[in-house]
Amino acid sequence: MEILCVDLHHAGYSDNKKTIKNIHFQLQQGELVGLIGPNGAGKSTIIKTILGLLEEVDGEINIAGNNRYAYIPEHPVYYEEFTLWEHIELAKAVNNIEDANFYQRAEQLISLFRLEHVKHHFPGSFSKGMQQKLMIIVAILIKPTLYIVDEPFIGLDPKAIKDFLSIIDEERQRGAAILMSTHVLDTAEKICDRFLLVNQGELIAAGTLDEVRAVSVPEASLMDCFYYFMENEKR
């Protein structure tokens, strides 16, 4: 089942500045797709377009199911005046979640990410990694059809990364699709089903690792394929 369909002719921040163009891809149920590219390649613009944050868009974005998606940003976004637990209660209210096990699941996630001691503290006092864990917990709790994840590993300790990847795998088994933007290519190579390589606002390669290798460097790692495309773009 198709969860996300992106069919963009172009999009940008003004009429005369088209940041991305000819971006066409789909995500299937239970699929994890890596969005790969150098800084300034257009990854953030693609994500903002999917989230509906850009006005200058020529194209369509379609999310199947209940249209419920969760966004885990690179830079945590939270309410200064709300505690960690109040963020969880807010997520429940805003998303009209009636799951009888919601608070039990919340407690389990808080324990998993070792945040019990700050459950009633304000996130402004947290480290970057702890704030990122809050973003992950809230996203998981709403059980979205689609996850859009931007650089999730930055600031997380090794155990939190392992726990996060385990949860992501469970969510895929539930049927959620995941679009993940990351620079951690060795991890992406291990966990992603397919890849979207972006540079200068356009898709320069897409497919499984074997499909990407077929148009770049046979038997190479994802990182080597990435460097191959970057070098050829310079010529």
Rank of each mutant, 00 (worst) to 15 (best):
A106M: 07
M135T: 06
V57M: 12
H120K: 13
D169E: 11
R114D: 13
Q108Y: 08
R68D: 15
E116F: 03
K234L: 07
E219Q: 14
M180C: 02
I161R: 13
I88Q: 06
D157E: 10
E211W: 11
V215N: 14
F102T: 02
Y103W: 11
K17V: 14
L141A: 12
H183S: 00
I63A: 07
L90T: 12
V118G: 01
P73H: 13
D186N: 04
G34T: 01
I136P: 14
I46C: 11
K234V: 08
I61Y: 06
D58F: 03
D58Y: 08
L134G: 05
A11S: 15
K133V: 06
S125E: 14
I3M: 04
G40E: 12
L165P: 10
A100R: 11
H120I: 04
G175T: 01
F102W: 07
L8E: 13
M130F: 03
R105I: 00
F126E: 04
I191C: 01
S14M: 06
L51N: 13
I168T: 06
S127M: 07
Q132M: 11
M230D: 09
Q104M: 07
N67K: 15
I137E: 05
D210P: 08
F122V: 00
P123S: 10
R114A: 13
L141D: 12
E56Q: 15
E89K: 12
I191E: 02
N199Q: 12
Y69R: 11
M135P: 01
V94K: 04
L35M: 13
K128H: 10
L165N: 13
L54K: 11
L4F: 07
K190I: 00
I178Y: 04
G207Q: 09
A220R: 10
I61P: 00
K43S: 09
V198T: 08
V138D: 08
N199A: 07
R194K: 11
Y103H: 06
T182G: 01
I63F: 07
A188W: 00
A205L: 03
N95F: 05
L209E: 14
K21N: 14
N66C: 12
L179G: 02
